[in-house]
């Protein structure tokens, strides 16, 4: 790993660790740590999805479904069958990898909007199943009774504890993904993004790499789903609907889709906008949200991680 990158990761780690301590001193921001927990959960999804979208040049509207399958596997197995949560988390990951393989193998042959539609269709079908299978999922009203997590003897029962737990996982996923990008796989992905034909002429097994990244990102989504279910102790289908799938895309595009940092920034920012800051505008919330999205897409084509570059350019020109 490069020196400068190590520095940045260090700063990132410091920021994450100090965040709750700073927040706890400011009473007016008391619930920010709580929001950061959800931001962290969503970040786990966007890190994987950004690899699939930004690096491999594909698209998926199906990751809300993987998130949901992870959450429902954990929810149903713990609440209805009393299985150990950690076991459920692993079962969830296993189920999701199998489904991602079955869906991905035929779908990833599709290109562009066709791939978008195929993953969208998959997402909607899963959503309908969550709604219809009342006996297991509780239907549209959702299901309660999902226990919290504990790490060995340590119960993760406070916001702060869960915060560190979730962001620890975000960090691990982040480092793993960065390593992946700098490995042979990452180079292959970038080659696929540039041109699938050229990549395959260079001897890259294009379908295999695409499928690997798809399954990897689905696993991260499933993991996030389990963490979500155990944190909020309740799940219902509308948390995993099409609008959430679109929200994931927005997070990635807004943050900057060609960088894993963008996935983090986008997820955190959109979470705070949706869950906190836009409340300020009351009924105008929706309009402001649309306007922000539009302005960012128009003026920041590289997403928010492109801002410093723009500022630098501007300063250079002035000098």
């Amino acid at each position: 790993m490069l020196k400068i990158q190590k520095l940045h990761i260090g700063i990132f780690a410091f920021f994450i660790i100090s965040f709750p301590f700073v927040i706890s001193r400011i009473p007016a921001l008391g619930n920010y740590t709580n929001i950061m927990v959800f931001a962290g959960i969503y970040t786990i999804i966007t890190i994987g999805l950004s690899l699939f979208i930004g690096y491999a040049g594909q698209i998926s509207l199906g990751h809300a479904a993987f998130f949901g399958i992870g959450a429902y596997t954990s929810g149903i197995l713990t609440a209805r069958f009393g299985i150990n949560p950690w076991m459920c988390l692993i079962i969830g990951i296993f189920i999701v990898s199998v489904i991602a393989f079955l869906v991905g193998a035929p779908s990833l042959k599709l290109k562009g909007h066709y791939l978008a539609m195929a993953t969208l269709a998959f997402g909607i079908i899963v959503y309908i199943i969550f709604n219809q299978e009342l006996e297991y999922t509780g239907g549209p009203d959702g299901m309660t009774g999902i226990p919290g997590l504990s790490l060995f003897a340590l119960k993760l029962n406070s916001v702060e504890k869960y915060y560190f737990f979730v962001w620890g996982i975000v960090f691990a996923a982040f480092l793993f993904t960065i390593n992946l990008i700098q490995s042979r796989t990452g180079r292959a992905l970038r080659a696929i993004h540039a041109s699938e034909a050229a990549a395959s002429a260079m001897g890259i097994n294009v379908p295999r790499f695409k499928l690997i990244v798809f399954i990897y990102s689905a696993i991260l989504a499933s993991l996030a789903g389990s963490l979500y279910a155990h944190y909020i102790n309740f799940i219902n289908p509308s948390s995993f609907d099409l609008f959430f799938a679109i929200k994931l895309l927005i997070m990635i595009a807004l943050g900057g889709m060609h960088s894993i940092w963008g996935a983090i920034v986008g997820a955190v920012l959109i979470t705070f906008l949706n869950y906190e800051w836009l409340h300020f505008f009351k009924e105008f919330e929706v309009i402001i949200y649309g306007a922000i999205l539009l302005l960012v897409t128009i003026f920041l084509p590289d997403g928010l991680v492109g801002i410093p570059g723009i500022i630098k350019k501007f300063v250079k020109r002035k000098l």
Binding site: L249, V286, I287, Y289, G290, A291, L293, L294
Partner: peptide
Amino acid sequence: IATIAVSIL
């Protein structure tokens, strides 16, 4: 994303 933003607006 731009067209989604428009639809939200």
